[in-house]
Design a protein around this nucleic acid. Structure first.
Length: 199
DNA sequence: ATAGAGATTGCCT
DNA sequence: GGCAATCTCTATA
């Protein structure tokens, strides 16, 4: 990637849905012993205040406490006993809400991601939240870290103008399933989900 | 205590 | 397109 700078927290919209849209086109950067890996965020979903599909809906638990941190912190949890999911906390400190990062377009450390994923199909390296976490070696050790500081995992911007952003229903949920809180880069090859949602 | 659902994935037909 | 794998939390007893 072309020398991205670390995003400042003050740049992040406080509002969950605005943050979900804002993060499209930004960079996700993972620093590993083997080198740098990461890419451009092409798909996100917002889980806002009072959302019955959100993990914070029934209050704070040991698992979801990072959702209540000030915006720009990582919430990492294990879904279905097998896949880690990366979220960016949103809203003010003490309010439980966040943005799920569903896919990135790999730009750096592709060899590292291929090893972590056990495939050389670049399209499949980070298309889907579980695959993304596997590719970047993200697990619960990163739960709660600040994504607005240079560290093991951070959000960046390379100043590139964002492509056209589409909006749709969220994937894989049953509650509040009709709300249009998913954002994606229209026409991007690295976006997950059924074709019907990606027009 | 126990059972069921869940922000997924990979392998099977 | 169907389905099992496997962990955490919630609801019910």
């Amino acid at each position: 990637m072309a020398h991205p700078r670390v995003l400042d927290r003050a740049e992040l919209p406080v509002d969950t849905v605005q943050l979900a849209r804002f993060l499209i086109g930004k960079m996700l950067v993972r620093m590993l012993a083997e080198g740098v890996a990461g890419g451009r965020i092409v798909e996100t979903e917002g889980y806002d205040i009072g959302d019955p599909a959100g993990h914070a809906y029934r209050g704070m638990t040991p698992r979801n406490r990072a959702l209540f941190l000030e915006r720009g912190h990582a919430y990492v949890y294990l879904a279905y006993g097998s896949s880690f999911m990366l979220n960016v906390s949103s809203e003010m400190s003490g309010v439980g809400a966040g943005v799920l990062i569903r896919a990135i377009e790999p730009t750096d450390g592709i060899g590292i991601m291929e090893r972590n994923r056990g495939t050389e199909r670049v399209r499949d390296l980070a298309r889907g939240p579980g695959r993304l976490s596997a590719a970047l070696g993200i697990d619960r050790r990163l739960d709660g870290i600040d994504l607005c500081r240079a560290g093991p995992l951070w959000l960046g911007s390379d100043g590139q103008a964002s492509d056209e952003i589409g909006q749709s229903k969220r994937i894989g949920i049953t509650r509040a399933a009709d709300r249009l809180l998913r954002f994606y880069v229209r026409g991007n090859w690295f976006v997950s989900g059924p074709q019907a949602l990606n027009g």
